[in-house]
Computed example of a mutant assay.
Amino acid sequence: MTAREVIVYADADAVAQATAARVLLKIGDTLAHRDRVDVVVTGGTVGIATLAAAASSPLASAIDWTDVHIWWGDERFVAAGDADRNEGQAQSALLASLPLPEENIHRMGAAGEFESAEDAARAYAREYADAGSPAFDVLMLGLGPDGHVASLFPGHPGYGDASAPVIAVHDSPKPPPTRVSLSLETINAALEVWVVAAGAAKAEVVARCVHGDTELPGAAVSGAERTLWLIDAAAATRI
Rank of each mutant, 00 (worst) to 15 (best):
A14F: 10
A200K: 08
S151T: 12
D13V: 12
G158K: 07
S163N: 13
S97Y: 05
V206T: 13
V221E: 01
I167M: 06
H33V: 15
A3K: 15
H106T: 11
S57M: 02
E102I: 05
P157C: 00
E103A: 04
A162S: 04
L94V: 05
A14D: 14
V138L: 01
E118L: 15
H106D: 08
D35P: 02
A236H: 07
L141D: 01
V138H: 00
P154S: 05
A18L: 08
A168T: 10
E215D: 13
A131T: 15
E87F: 00
E192N: 13
A32Q: 13
G81T: 10
R208M: 14
G160N: 12
G109D: 06
A18Q: 14
T186S: 10
L94P: 11
A125V: 07
G81Y: 12
I63G: 13
K174Q: 08
A123S: 06
E87K: 00
W194C: 12
A190F: 14
E127L: 07
H106S: 06
A49H: 14
A93G: 10
A55S: 10
S57K: 02
G218T: 09
R76G: 03
A12G: 04
G144M: 07
I48W: 04
E127C: 04
A93R: 07
D35K: 11
H69K: 10
E204D: 04
W71R: 05
S183H: 01
A150M: 03
G81M: 12
P154Y: 04
A52P: 05
A62I: 11
P134C: 02
A111D: 15
L51D: 03
A233E: 15
I27E: 01
D64V: 14
G223R: 01
I239L: 12
A54T: 07
Y128K: 03
G44N: 03
G223S: 14
A111T: 13
G142W: 05
P173Q: 10
V180A: 04
G218H: 10
N104Y: 02
S57G: 01
T214G: 06
A207D: 05
I70R: 07
G44H: 01
P176I: 15
R36G: 05
H170N: 14
A111L: 14
A236Y: 06
T45M: 09
S163V: 04
A79L: 09
D13C: 11
R107E: 15
D146A: 06
A123T: 01
A52K: 01
G212E: 06
L94D: 04
V149T: 09
A129S: 02
G47N: 11
E102V: 08
W194N: 13
P173Y: 02
L24N: 12
N188E: 03
A235H: 07
D35W: 12
D119Q: 08
L59N: 03
T66W: 03
A53F: 05
V40N: 05
E225A: 11
I70F: 06
A164R: 14
F153A: 06
M140I: 15
K174N: 13
A93T: 10
P154M: 02
V39H: 07
E225L: 09
D74W: 13
A235C: 12
A234V: 14
R76T: 05
R107I: 11
T50N: 09
